[in-house]
Design a protein around this nucleic acid. Structure first.
Lengths: 346, 346
DNA sequence: TTGTATGCGTTATCAC
DNA sequence: GTGATAACGCATACAA
């Protein structure tokens, strides 16, 4: 293909390396697959020549015959939150270290793109797929995925119908929120807080419903009245507006849980800069996630922490174990949460 | 391969679709390539059956014969800043709409991974590669890339040796910072600011050096003394520390430029929460980028804006044009900057 | 409009 | 330890 001075350069092929090294194509292939048998000196020679010629095995061709693309698909919402960006980031670094490349796919949160997206994605033949949030229905995922291994991030909450299901159908990461939420509510009770509000995330998101339900459960166990819910969507802007409504239309609150840290920032800014209230003196604020900027001085947020590195390691473990043992029963990993106490409660 | 009840499901192949539709394999291939000739009813039938069987053409196989992987590699630093995250995000959405998937690769900013990374990446055969920042040397990129088309984000600054080069060697996006910086300096002069400081990004980063040099140039043109430079690395933490040094060890400043918005947040927090100074009354602050959270009330940052959407569109244009016309001379796009005035100057 | 034959670059199988 | 040969799933040139 056009290589007469154009900008597109030809790639070296195994054949060329073989010729230069006076060996067969097969030997070149073997040189790049450590587990095969090849005289060490021959392997060295081939690898040296390959480097000279800038040759790397073509993964598309390799995938065709080996059935392994070394691609991991990650499905994220149309526009990523900070948490998701940070997770993509860490996941990519971890996967790259294991020889996988991450393939990014965007979808809408309303399931409208599900089938089209998944067919599209399947064409790339990823070895595994991580469905981050609730952008893709599990049933659809399984139906359309073909060869790939789906990993699901799941938020169980004690006593829900969900856990009554006969075991998971696919590998998943269970995120247990109870510990962190209990610690948070206990802390607030210690400060004699009476009225607690919850600024929600996207209503049908499982991350959101699980958080709200857990908060509700823990509060009930402690004999507290249920939280007032102000509708948000995980964004700064909606949380900001919801907080204004809560105080201008509603009856306010002594403490506010936000469904995520970014929402908590919106809550704090609305309280301080629009409503003229002090945080934490007048109103206490707690978030979920513990993203990188939660410790920034302007917010210094008390939050229920999900350990990102731990989460990424768990996901990578799930992927590798499944790939090494395709027929194993469904795997699960569990992740705990805990409260990180900073300046917005006190 | 293992399909006896395991979790890995077989993928439908063109052969199966052909059999069910009583046509040849080739007809199936044609049905999925719109530009080929095929009786419409036949095409419809095939597509319907394909959908029933959950068949999608295998892109690895297709890439092998067509030379197009429909993969775009993006090289980003080991740990992404907000700007980069947002750009990856937007870029992925835009590319997906054009039928490309983004392949993410991480590298270090010290060039130490260059050759290994690029060989690794080349194996995936991306149709195009976007080198975001200065994580990969252009010469290395060209040498190791094989078939892919590199796109470079470049920051020219008038009068530098750089622009004396005989035209670009590869496609690139030129980001012109002058307009925004001029507006910023003019605004500060209007407030009679005397001592201006610059909290830098990573020293050898071209984004950083270009910004500093442009600031220096514009200030000199206006007869202002050169800015004091405090060393940062684009991070909140370093900018925070650099600001403390600037005021506790150094002689302080009336206005501070930060190399990026995140750094500006660090500057603001150090001023307000550690040094007890008011922004903008005591010290004015200006950032670069205009990331999503720059308009959050706690910071409400005045900043030199790089239009993300425009930038993404320009990059996508570059990629598509190059792919449609591989032998065209090097393409360039240009991006302007402008000042967005918010609350940290005034 | 349609089908047949060939090749893309690699690994797996089987000989030796 | 090594080399020939056959796949992998698809698109294209060519013939019909």
């Amino acid at each position: 293909m056009s290589e007469e001075g154009g900008m597109i350069r030809a790639r070296a092929t195994a054949e060329m390396v073989a010729q230069r090294a006076s060996v067969s194509r097969v030997a070149v292939s073997r040189a790049f697959n450590p587990h095969t048998s090849l005289k060490p000196e021959k392997r060295e020679l081939i690898l040296r020549i390959a480097q000279e010629l800038n040759y790397t095995p073509d993964r598309a061709a390799r995938a065709l015959v080996s059935g392994r693309s070394h691609l991991v698909g990650i499905i994220v919402p149309d526009v990523c939150s900070h948490w998701e960006s940070q997770e993509i980031d860490a996941l990519t670094t971890a996967l790259q270290a294991e020889g996988f490349a991450t393939l990014l796919f965007k979808t809408r949160t309303d399931y409208s793109m599900d089938e089209k997206l998944l067919s599209y994605m399947r064409g790339f033949n990823p070895d595994s797929v991580i469905a981050f949030v609730e952008n893709v229905k599990p049933t659809t995922l399984v139906r359309f995925l073909g060869r790939a291994v789906p990993i699901y991030v799941h938020y169980p909450h004690g006593g829900s119908v969900d856990d009554a299901q006969p075991g998971p159908l696919h590998d998943r990461l269970n995120v247990l929120q109870r510990a962190g939420v209990e610690q948070a509510v206990a802390l607030l009770e210690g400060y004699k807080v009476r009225r607690i509000a919850y600024v929600s995330g996207i209503g049908k998101s499982r991350a959101n419903t699980a958080r709200e339900l857990m908060l509700r459960t823990v509060m009930a166990e402690r004999g507290l009245p249920p939280p007032v819910v102000a509708p948000g969507d995980f964004s700064y802007e909606r949380a900001f507006a919801a907080t204004l409504d809560l105080f201008r239309v509603g009856k306010g609150a002594d403490a506010i849980f936000a469904a995520n840290d970014v929402g908590a920032f919106g809550v704090i800014d609305a309280l301080r800069h629009e409503l003229g209230l002090r945080v934490p003196e007048d109103v206490k604020v707690i978030g979920f996630d513990d993203i990188a900027q939660s410790h920034w001085k302007s917010y210094n947020l008390t939050t229920v922490k999900f350990d990102l590195d731990e989460r990424v390691r768990a996901l990578v473990r799930l992927i590798l174990r499944r790939l090494n043992n395709p027929d194993a029963p469904a795997l699960q990993e569990t992740l705990q949460t805990r409260l990180v106490v900073r300046g917005t409660v006190g």
